[in-house]
């Protein structure tokens, strides 16, 4: 039986929510108060946060794979060390995020099982392959750039543990994007082959990066309550536009061409990009991107092959506890 489970609110888990509690909760959110793990919260708030935070965590961990693919082939020792440090940071970010999700009542094991079973999502962008060293630069520049745009507002999201995890992440994130941009800049200023490598990488990653921000505002199903509960502070299209406006001048500085011949600048200086191929996005989300199966297979392999290690650690801990108890009894 459950022990002193006094901080359950099974009532709200069954959807029978007190209107007064819900109103009070909303008032706290409106006043920019932070919701903490033991505070009363609507079941839907808890559920949507577990989904969002764990998805974010899965993304960090799966995101280690495309970049990790180039650690052993990094072209200089400085780049090798920097890339390893960056990928390790991403592992750490996944850890902080799982920790935040766990404060809502899910265990990391449950969340990871769901991801390995294909039931939980991670960011679509990590289902694309890293084919050249230039991809590493472009990922740091664009993918981390897009992530930062999403993460900075989350530092002020309503749920305390998530906001604090995001503050930690953002502090560590600043060197990632700079590192990526520096790699691409070096290539752009290099030989013709290097410049072509950079342009080719940009051509392949640009559109998937724009898709990272999610479907157009009209199409998204999670928008309204997430906004009302200050989990999501800007819309997909707002963030996407902000990203494009920041990135186009960066590409121009590099002397690279954004692979969107139809893109034009409007009267307000915003860069209007062409229609995104949302069919590709749907396919990738459904598991049909270039690397979906490989990514899950790699994570499942690590998980399965690590089982005996985790079991050994648990077995030792049990033995140690038993020995300590036996010793204390003497």
């Amino acid at each position: 039986m459950y022990t002193q489970a006094l901080n359950t609110s099974d009532a709200d888990d069954r959807g029978l929510e007190d209107a007064e509690r819900a109103a009070h909760f909303q008032a706290r959110i409106d006043a920019e108060e932070r919701i903490e793990p033991n505070d009363w919260m609507p079941a839907a708030y808890r559920k949507t946060l577990i989904r969002q935070i764990s998805q974010h965590a899965h993304s960090e961990i799966v995101g280690m794979l495309p970049e990790g693919n180039w650690i052993t082939r990094a072209p200089t020792l400085r780049r090798k060390a920097a890339l390893l440090a960056k990928v390790q940071d991403e592992c750490g970010h996944g850890l902080y995020l799982y920790a935040a999700a766990e404060t809502l009542g899910a265990s990391r094991e449950q969340l990871v099982d769901a991801m390995l079973a294909g039931k939980a999502k991670y960011s679509s962008i990590f289902n694309y392959p890293t084919l050249t060293w230039a991809d590493i630069g472009v990922i740091g520049w664009l993918v981390d750039g897009a992530a930062i745009m999403n993460q900075i507002p989350l530092c002020r999201c309503s749920y305390g543990p998530y906001a604090r995890a995001m503050i930690r992440v953002c502090k560590e994130e600043s060197f990632h994007q700079r590192q990526g941009y520096e790699i691409v800049l070096t290539l752009a200023r290099g030989s013709d082959e290097q410049k072509a490598m950079a342009q080719d990488a940009l051509n392949r990653w640009w559109w998937p990066v724009l898709m990272m921000f999610g479907p157009p505002d009209k199409a998204s199903q999670h928008g309204d309550t997430s906004t009302r509960w200050k989990i999501k502070r800007f819309s997909n299209d707002e963030l996407r536009q902000k990203f494009v406006d920041a990135t186009v001048p960066q590409a121009q500085f590099l002397g690279l061409t954004i692979p969107d011949p139809g893109m034009t600048q409007d009267g307000d200086g915003h860069w209007r990009y062409s229609e995104i191929d949302w069919d590709e996005f749907k396919q990738v989300l459904a598991g049909n991107g270039p690397c979906n199966r490989d990514r899950i297979a790699a994570r499942r392999k690590a998980h399965d092959e690590g089982a005996w290690v985790r079991e050994a650690a648990a077995a030792y801990a049990e033995k140690r506890k038993y020995r300590q108890t036996a010793q204390a009894a003497e």
């Binding site: 002193q4 006094l6 901080n7 033991n38 404060t103 809502l104 009542g105 265990s107 449950q110």
Partner: peptide, 10 residues
């Protein structure tokens, strides 16, 4: 009353 810091399954 007293409680745990959050409702973790373990």
């Amino acid at each position: 009353a007293e409680s745990k810091i959050y409702r973790h399954p373990t």
